[in-house]
Amino acid sequence: MKKKEIIIILLIALIAFIAILITNQKKDYSAEQYVVITIDKEMYKKIPFDVDTYEEIAVHTDLGNNTIIINNGSVDVVDADCPDFVCVNTKPAAQVGDMIVCLPHRLIVEISE
């Protein structure tokens, strides 16, 4: 590897790092927030969301099953029968813009205004 190549790669890493910082900025949202669950392009459920919301949602579709728990101001996919378990390992969503995706089941859980 030449010096030039290392610089290019470090530059790419820097851009990615800055992009993460920008997308992770904490913002104040006073407006009402919702947990939106989308399955295969269609909205499945839209739940008003704040710190006190408690709800356990079991999603059963032809594509598969996921269990979502909303508690203590965060949303987490706690169980799934997908092959990769990415959604279960994703950290709980707590802010507007956070999302949990289960690609095999085409399921998206996101927090929106």
Partner: peptide, 23 residues
């Protein structure tokens, strides 16, 4: 491909993380 299939372009927010892992 995933963005087209699930019709949600916001999953692009995962790209910077993926780039950092790809290195």
């Amino acid at each position: 491909a995933a963005a087209v299939i699930i019709a949600n372009y916001k999953i692009g927010i995962f790209l910077p993380f993926l780039v950092l892992i790809a290195i």
